[in-house]
Write a protein that binds this DNA or RNA. Sequence first.
DNA 1: CTGAAAGCGCTTACAG
DNA 2: CTGAAAGCGCTTACAG
Lengths: 343, 343
Amino acid sequence: MSRTTINDIAALAGVSKGTVSRVLNGHPRVSERSQEAVWQAVTQTGYRANVHARSLATGRNNAIALLIAAASEQLFNDPTFAELIEGVRDGLLDSDLSLVILMGGSEIEDHRTVSYIKAGHVDGLIHLNPFIDDPITAGLADSALPLVLCGPRPPIPLPRRNWLVTMDDVGGVRQALDHLASRGARTIAMIGGDPRGVSAGIRFQAYRDWLGPNFDPDLFEPGDYGTGSGNVAFGRLPDRRPGIDALFCASDRMAIGALETAYRRGRHVPGDLLVMGFDDHQIAAQADPPLSTIHQPIREIGRTAASTLLAAMAGETPSDKIFPTQLVVRGSTWPQSTPTDSH
Amino acid sequence: MSRTTINDIAALAGVSKGTVSRVLNGHPRVSERSQEAVWQAVTQTGYRANVHARSLATGRNNAIALLIAAASEQLFNDPTFAELIEGVRDGLLDSDLSLVILMGGSEIEDHRTVSYIKAGHVDGLIHLNPFIDDPITAGLADSALPLVLCGPRPPIPLPRRNWLVTMDDVGGVRQALDHLASRGARTIAMIGGDPRGVSAGIRFQAYRDWLGPNFDPDLFEPGDYGTGSGNVAFGRLPDRRPGIDALFCASDRMAIGALETAYRRGRHVPGDLLVMGFDDHQIAAQADPPLSTIHQPIREIGRTAASTLLAAMAGETPSDKIFPTQLVVRGSTWPQSTPTDSH
DNA sequence: CTGAAAGCGCTTACAG
DNA sequence: CTGAAAGCGCTTACAG
């Protein structure tokens, strides 16, 4: 009934437990004979090393944590996260590290997450969406663990060893606005992202800078990246500021919400309103009309975050990675196409 | 630089490490004097016990795993999961167990998840959405760990010690269909849920049983719980089977997709089509018209799953819990209300 | 109430 | 190539 241990294997294989350990860890100088005997005993018994004993002996955990600032419904509604997580898992696939997902949100949960990490459960960290004043990140300020941020650096102290793997927010915003301008837009409004996140502020600033003297606070409405907030925001903008002929949204989902509201209000896209999203999720291509947007290589960001962390944990010194975005033009800014249901 | 250990605390407090351990674990018989000295030393140094040493000594992990069959985009689009997870976290809040989230999907990931559990990282399991032929559950068939299923029992061998915490699928379906009938529906179509999951089959069967001799395969269309699949499914149903005057969807999101398609096709809800969802998410109340639906106490299911597991881990023998559902009537089946935008 | 000691199951220099 | 032994940092009977 009691679990088989390395001693059982040693006895079965007729070697010392030191040799068992060497075989299990792929140590270079072990005789064929020993190897065979050990593997035979291992498969026969279904033996698995006790991870705690191993960690205690080596000081390593073979686990990394995926940090998520808050587990709101919004988060779970956001395809970006699903893709980012998939990417990270991809990047970990041929390491044997396990991935522990930790979420903040309430004070208790933030505290618990920080505790878990400080208790030494993991060897490295990937933070998916640091907030501006992120309590988890803040709680780790004096940690020696390597941290990879998927997003811009928040303005608070970080662990000493940290890296950035993200995409070029500012460049993406410019691509969108340049494109709208090239399509003849004169008055471009913006619906921004969740202001708790760092990138929402950066995208807003990029928009403001691009407009320069033409910037008008009435042209901007904050959102939370979700469809509903796009609906609401575009319900307000045109009343407050007439003459809007183009709309740039910080996420595809908000753009789709806005599209819906525009439709209900009888505004024709792209006929009398150009609309752009940001993300290039599946939903963008499926929208009616199909949504022009800024493509970000989310999955690759996730993968790269993982490989960067692996490198850092191996003692290398990887570099930050900022991926370029890419303009994707579809019906919502494409005057030629007249979207119809039939045909 | 090296981490403080129990020995450092013992030295600082002037007691043996046995006493330190007793204080830390709240052992009943320790002198005030020792307690104070130890806590003082602990706070002064910021000491935290090494979890691996502790686990090795006690044989316990103080961690449980939350299993998710597959991390598709659909999953992350589903508010049910967010709520369920929140509920579980709620239920764990005043234990000091940590929650490790493990996901399956590909073969590698399923294997990895099973491995992680078998390697002895956790003391208990909560499975959020067992599939009919769930590879993770199957991999754990001979496990001695307690398992709580949030959903119906899949037709494959489970760990010996398992419990169900879920809601009454069949009752919910009947409530919906009875309600539609009471509103005068004659020909009720259904859009079903993700057929990989166990409850989708049960809901379909309940629908079929309810219709009895009136059941017609052409009235049923499978979906995946997501909005898009509601759109698609309701795009097909009326063409294939004229005369449909009511639609029951296995999720609110599919119902909203169907509502959209109905709107575009000029069908008036509830005037010439009654529509019901299932879940009672926020989005149901916000839909246009507001969606009648079947309320399930998701958050409480999550909380109860956690407390049931805690009880099982403490050696008690909790009972299964099947929560009743509740009918929620709104505009989509409420003939009196004529939804309009402007008041 | 508390100390000394054994033990949890591994890994890894150290000799040979 | 390999065994014997020390050590990782805790917990917990066992005495006292």
